[in-house]
């Protein structure tokens, strides 16, 4: 009969002691691992599964546009046919989950600064995005006096040159030349509106029109930049370097 005890006795003593040490060490490592590594560590990967659950259970703050649509049908149908159709309600009204659950008020922004967050003229903004210079665009008024934020199309339809020359006129409206009428530089035949191709407006052919305000001898206010006409880039016309419609003034 071979019992485990007899086998154990057969092993030389120095090996037995070494064996006990090794097994003891092994058990200590296992015990410490059990103590220090969370039970759910490594179930899905090298992390605690409960961390994933905690992250999932964090409270929401923003409700999402679909939630708003459940109650505010009227506003939604209005905004859907306007230039603001891409906007989420919470873009302007702030986080609204608490409001949707029946408690807490929603923000109704009325200040000019709120609209200017997106619509103030900044050189880095994409070309064609509607922007205004807050100092030139009806300064004392609130935006909401003329534009309904749920349908912001301007209440006054474009008139005169703006009707066809929209891009240039909106660019000019934020340039230093905003206050000048188009006809200051362009002489427009009265029939241009009816027959635009054959009755063309004029473009300046010489620099007299610029010099009226920008020459050193002109009697215009000081904030208008002035140059010495004869020595300033001789041989070039003003608009070869300065684009008069541009907000940067060339």
């Amino acid at each position: 009969m071979v019992t485990p005890l007899k086998i154990w006795k057969k092993i030389p003593e120095q090996y037995r002691r070494l064996g006990i040490l090794i097994i003891g060490g092994f058990l200590t490592v296992i015990f410490l691992r059990e103590q220090f590594i969370p039970s759910d560590f490594g179930e899905l990967g090298h992390y605690r599964t409960s961390a994933l659950v905690n992250e999932k259970n964090k409270p929401l703050v923003y409700a999402g546009r679909e939630k708003c649509e459940e109650c505010h049908e009227e506003e939604v149908s209005k905004i859907e046919n306007s230039y603001h159709k891409l906007l989420s309600c919470e873009t302007c009204h702030g986080p609204g989950l608490k409001h949707a659950e029946g408690e807490g008020e929603i923000i109704i922004p009325r200040k000019r600064e709120e609209c200017l967050k997106c619509h103030e003229y900044i050189v880095s903004r994409p070309t064609g995005f509607p922007q205004v210079d807050p100092y030139l665009h009806n300064p004392p008024k609130q935006c909401t006096e003329c534009h309904n934020p749920h349908d912001p199309t301007p209440p006054h339809p474009p008139t005169d040159c703006q009707v066809c020359h929209r891009t240039i006129s909106s660019m000019k409206s934020i340039s230093p030349h905003a206050s000048l009428e188009c006809t200051v530089c362009h002489k427009t035949p009265s029939h241009h509106k009816f027959d635009p191709r054959s009755q063309r407006p004029t473009k300046p052919t010489n620099t007299d029109v610029c010099e009226r305000c920008h020459s050193e001898t002109a009697k215009t206010p000081d904030y208008i930049p002035k140059i010495e006409v004869d020595s300033h880039s001789e041989g070039y016309l003003c608009w070869e370097c300065h684009y008069p419609h541009s907000p940067e003034g060339g």
């Binding site: 992250e55 999932k56 259970n57 964090k58 409270p59 929401l60 703050v61 923003y62 999402g64 546009r65 603001h84 891409l86 906007l87 989420s88 919470e90 873009t91 997106c118 995005f129």
Partner: peptide
């Protein structure tokens, strides 16, 4: 950034995507 993990796992958009006015 967690891509708003608590939102996307519920089928919602991340908060930044939700509010971006120009998409």
């Amino acid at each position: 950034c967690t891509f708003c993990y608590h939102r996307i796992t519920k089928g919602l958009k991340p908060a930044c995507v939700e509010v971006c006015p120009t998409h």
